[in-house]
């Protein structure tokens, strides 16, 4: 399996020391359950990132929600990597139910092909993702299969240009 790690490598750790027990349990059990499908990208106090294949995104999200109570999406975004011809999609999952996980955010990342950008929607697992996915569809041109409204949201109605957050969309004068 090819390594699709974050190409920018690891980050130095400047945050305070916190108990990492629960969070590393999450990572461990997730990797055990879906052994080949999940890769750990980094683990820091209160933040970790796992990389999932796009096919297994939905089942991993469902597992994380049902087992650990990661019940809402703090943020969701996409990033264009033209050099690798891929778009990375990040779901930042947090928990309101599980009090131990209040300060913790798990970055669930997946990548899709840049030319035919299509990903599975997590709207049935996290309803809070609805507007975030619509925004990502519009800003990066990633179609979300299963999302009821892949349609313009923030941009003007007559927008007829590239999705603006792709790197080949250039700003005038910059």
């Amino acid at each position: 399996m090819e390594n699709k790690d974050n190409s920018f490598g690891q980050l130095i750790d400047t945050s305070k020391d916190l108990d990492n027990k629960i969070t590393s349990n999450i990572i461990k059990s997730a990797i055990q359950n879906f052994n080949q499908k999940i890769q750990l990208v980094y683990e820091k106090p209160n933040r970790s990132k796992i990389f999932v294949n796009n096919e297994s995104l939905v089942e991993v999200a469902l597992f994380l929600r049902n087992t650990y109570g990661l019940d809402h999406v703090e943020s969701m975004s996409g990033t264009d990597f033209p050099a690798e011809n891929e778009i990375e999609i990040n779901y930042h999952l947090g928990s309101y139910i599980n009090q131990d996980l209040h300060p913790y955010i798990l970055n669930l990342a997946t990548r899709v092909d840049r030319e035919n950008a299509k990903s599975n929607s997590l709207i049935n697992i996290f309803p809070s993702v609805e507007y975030f996915e619509r925004e990502t569809y519009e800003m990066l041109g990633v179609y979300f299969v299963g999302h009821p409204r892949n349609e313009p949201f923030l941009l003007p109605e007559d927008w007829a240009d590239l999705p603006p957050l792709r790197k080949d969309f250039k700003l005038k004068g910059r």
């Binding site: 974050n6 920018f8 933040r47 990132k49 930042h92």
Partner: peptide, 9 residues
């Protein structure tokens, strides 16, 4: 900045 990523709130 160092290469990497962060989420702060």
């Amino acid at each position: 900045a160092q290469p990497g990523e962060t989420y702060r709130r």
